[in-house]
């Protein structure tokens, strides 16, 4: 009698413990856990008035050798992280250094700029609203869950670096295309972003590999209140 109660209880505790243990392990085994915070940079005049201003510098590499422990060093990747945290109701200026080559994009919808301040992006000093769909390197595309809150949608196409201009110097890429743009964040929430240019070579529709794995060409875009 007693043994049965104790035994059953112990089994439940052990079972729940096992599940909690496995869950903790899986939860900890995220491919990319680091989160990159935006850097404060005073205030900025925007169409929505004066907002707190932040900056964020990102790079896109044709391979992820730059990561010290990438499971797939030959995959394309964003860096230094793929998870970004930015404050709500602020202006964030992104500076993207795009080092990769490119090709025509399969869906030219993503060659058009959307969701940035003034609807433009700045490529190597020039303001544009769209990019030639035949020379896309990657895109930075953020979308939100339609939670009834702000339905975020940002699409920033980034031109490719022509093959002959792509050059390396002691393992470091040089000659990036520099893309700058500013977004104005809405309510807090956890969104996701990914690249909509198919860059998973050798996979079906080139959307496998780095495109379909966490920590390379997709990640979280977290908007916080503080």
């Amino acid at each position: 009698m007693n043994r049965r109660i104790v035994g059953a209880f112990a089994t439940v505790v052990l079972g729940a413990g096992l599940i909690a243990g496995i869950g903790t392990y899986v939860s900890a085994a995220k491919a990319d856990t680091t989160i990159l915070d935006a850097t404060p940079a005073g205030t900025l005049e925007t169409p929505q008035g004066t907002l707190k201003h932040f900056t964020m510098d990102l790079s896109i590499y044709p391979d992820s050798f730059f990561k010290t422990s990438s499971p797939h060093p030959d995959w394309v990747s964003y860096g230094p992280s793929t998870n970004f945290r930015v404050p709500a109701h602020s202006a964030i200026t992104f500076t993207m250094k795009q080092y990769d080559s490119g090709e025509p994009i399969t869906n030219d919808f993503f060659a058009r700029v959307a969701g940035t301040m003034n609807g433009t992006i700045n490529i190597d000093g020039k303001d544009v609203t769209k990019v030639d769909a035949n020379t896309i390197g990657h895109t930075f595309t953020v979308r939100g869950l339609s939670n009834g809150k702000s339905n975020l949608f940002i699409n920033v196409p980034m031109p490719m670096v022509p093959e002959d201009k792509m050059s390396e110097n002691e393992g470091e890429y040089i000659n990036p295309t520099i893309v700058k743009f500013t977004i104005i964040t809405g309510d807090a929430g956890e969104y996701v972003w990914n690249c909509e240019f198919p860059c998973g070579d050798g996979t079906l529709a080139r959307f496998g590999g780095p495109m379909s794995s966490q920590g390379f060409m997709s990640g979280h875009f977290i908007v916080t209140d503080n």
Partner: peptide, 18 residues
């Protein structure tokens, strides 16, 4: 709401529009 009703990979849960 527009949602995707067929599992389509990594970010299937977020494939939504209005």
């Amino acid at each position: 709401d527009v949602r995707c009703a067929e599992l389509c990979g990594l970010l299937h849960a977020y494939m939504q529009s209005q």
